[in-house]
Structure formats: C-alpha cells, structure tokens
Write a protein that binds this DNA or RNA. Structure first.
Lengths: 200, 200
DNA sequence: TCAACTGACATACAGGACGTATGTTAAATT
DNA sequence: AATTTAACATACGTCCTGTATGTCAGTTGA
C-alpha cells in the first residue's frame, strides 16, 4: 500500500491547487478569488499555495499554462488531421475558435490571463503555438503559396484573429450561430494571405 | 471673477480625477493603483471619487471611455482624409495600430480595460467604432466590392486584427520596425475581404 | 534502528485597500 | 434669511495578500 513519498504528496497538492484554481478563477475571476477559500476548498491552507507557487500570480500562471497547453495540443491535432499545410492552419484556427465556447477558457485564458500575466505572446504555451504557426507559414512561403510578408507578423495576426473570434463567440448570446459567422469571417480574412484569392 | 457654480466645480473634480486616473492606471496598472494615493494626487479624497464614479471600476470606465473615444475619433479622421471606402478603412486600421505606441493606451485600453470592464465590443466607445466599420463595409457590400460574409463578423475581425496588431507593436522591443511589419500584415489579411485579390 | 535534519505545510501577524456610514460646509431654493 | 440639498471629507469595518514563525512527517546517515 504504497507509503506515499514526499515528492508524490507534493505533486498531489500541486494538482489539487491547480484544479481548485481552475474552478475559482473561472467562477469568480482572478481578482475576486480569495486564496483562503481556494486553498480551503482543496483541503489545504495558504501555506501550501505560497510554498508551491510563490504567490497568487504563480498559481494563475500554472493554471493558464495547463489550459492553454491543452488548447494548443487540440488545435495541433486538428491541424494534423486536416493534413497540415494551409488546410491544417485553417483547421487549427477553427478548433481554437470552437474551444472558446468553454466559459473556463473564456475567463481564465482569454480575459484574466492577458491582464495579469501580460501579453499572451510571451506565455510559454502561446509561444509554442506561435512557433508552430510560423513553421507552417514558412513552408507555405517556400512553396510560394502565400504573399511575401513578414512571417512572424502574419502568424501573430492569424492567431490574433482566431483569438478575437474566440472572444466574440465567447461573449455572444447565441454562441452556435455566432460560431459559424466567426469561422467564416476568419477564413475570409485568412484567404488574404494566399497569393491566389479564392478557394483553391 | 466668476463665482464658480456647483456644477462647474463638480465638472472640475471629475476632470481632475480622470486625469489622475490616467496617470495612476498607466503607471501602476488598475489593480495596483491605490485610490487613496490617486485622489490625494488630485488634491481630493476618496469621498469625491465614490460620489462621482460610484466605485473604482466606475473611474476606470470613465478613463477608458475618454481615451478610447479619442482614439476612435483620430482613426475616423484619418479614414475620412483617405476618402472613405476601402482606403478609408485601411487608413483607420493603420491609425489605430499606430496609436498603440502610446504606453498609456497599451496598459489602460488594451490590457486592463478588457480584463476589468469585460469585452471591448460592449464598451460604448468601441461600439461606436464598430458601428462605423459596419456602415462602411455595408456600403462596400452594396457595391459588390467585398465577399458575401456576415458584415458584423467581418467588422469585428478587422477591428480585432488592428487591436491585436496594436498589442504586438505595444509590447515589441523595436516598435518602429514592428509597426511596419504589423501594418503590412494587417493589410494583407484585410485584402482577403475583397472579391478581387491584390491592390486594386 | 535511531537520532538529527530537512522541508512541506499550517498558523499567526502585519500592512494596506476598498466600500460605506456619517459628518461638514457651501451652494441653491423659497 | 432660513432651510434644504448635495458635494466632498473623515472614520470605520472588513477582507485579502504576503511573510514570519511554528510543527510534524519523512528522509538521511551511521
């Protein structure tokens, strides 16, 4: 019956705290989330929090990284399933937008994250996503499939459109209808990157 | 010597508080701005603040509205100067991006605003800007100049790209260089809206 | 096996911030 | 001129964050 080692227990508390953070930050928002209540809901005290994450922002960073990494992974999977290249890029964008239907993602990643952790471009998780987009655009550029514009700029704008579309869907009163409009508009703008306009 | 009426003095204090808010929010950020220090710097106390703006968020809303309205006005002027239509729309976008070079705008409008006041689309100032974009796109649609995609979605995405570009420029280490890249990428994506690709 | 030590976490404390309730004074009203 | 109103100041209560200290289980070395 596995006498739990110290490192195992510590990993357990980290998991508990991050889970409690996801709940509290999603429900009350980062600013209004009390660390007393949050840690108590995890069966702990603030001592565990400050020992493991340094401060309140440290926990937010951990929570955001976990959620955002999962988002990027899902988007990447969708892109690969679509065969990579341009179609893959569009699939990634669609997936990212669809994920914004989750209220937890809306509040924590799309709203509070940028405010309290700074520009998302500097998050480790977002950087990985951005690098992937840059790589794909680089291939397309080598094939002469896209216009000769700064690749990093394009990647950031494309990600930005997807993020903005996600936010719109998120705050919409009729998310399903808005989702379709947002995806269409996203693909419309994205098509501006292609050398030849249209669907081929 | 104009014995100041009560309404005049009240307007004065509102102006003072908003000015102090712009400074404090820009320097320390909304969360870390103390209302005691802020009001003291304006030669007042928190009493004036809570009487005039209800609460801390009320002051932020007033500050954001003032700044954002000025931004929208500048962008609109640039659009008119460019002759309206598509060229006007592009000029508006460029202006909006260029305005993001101001640190005050970066922090208050682009970062803290969305977090503490919610989605910018619901701000009165942003709504005016959005309505203007929708109107222009509507004209272009009537002329058959742009693709048949939901106008509101397009307008929101276009504004979103400009805002995202602004944020990128804002956090860049070399704003001037980044500015050019961002504007090019913005125009590249925007061109996806036109039925005929390219510069004419 | 046992004693000493390390560290994960709990508890107690200090500082500060927000919002409200109450007081004060100057302007407006009649 | 007396009264009322309201703009603002002052004082208070409550809550939260971060730190400093305490405690005990788990680890280590002989």
């Amino acid at each position: 019956m596995a006498a739990k080692t110290r490192a195992e227990k510590m990993e357990e508390t980290r998991v508990k705290l991050i889970a409690a953070g996801r709940k509290a930050f999603a429900q009350k928002g980062y600013a209004d989330a009390s660390m007393d209540e949050l840690t108590a809901s995890a069966g702990l005290t603030r001592g565990a929090l400050y020992h493991n994450f340094g401060d309140k922002l440290g926990l937010l960073a951990a929570v955001v990284d976990e959620i955002d990494s999962a988002m990027a992974q899902q988007a990447k999977d969708a892109g690969d399933a679509a065969g990579g290249g341009w179609n893959g890029l569009m699939a990634e964008g669609r997936t990212y937008i669809e994920l914004a239907l989750d209220p937890e993602i809306q509040r924590i990643v799309l709203r509070d994250g940028p405010a309290f952790l700074g520009d998302p471009s500097n998050w480790p998780s977002q950087n990985r996503c951005l690098q992937a987009t840059i790589a794909t655009l680089g291939e397309l550029a080598d094939q002469g499939a896209i216009k000769s514009v700064d690749i990093e700029a394009l990647a950031r704008m494309l990600n930005g459109v997807a993020l903005n579309a996600a936010l719109w869907v998120a705050t919409s009163e009729d998310p399903q209808t808005t989702l379709h409009k947002a995806i269409s508009a996203f693909e419309c703008l994205a098509s501006g990157v292609l050398v030849k306009d249209g669907d081929r």
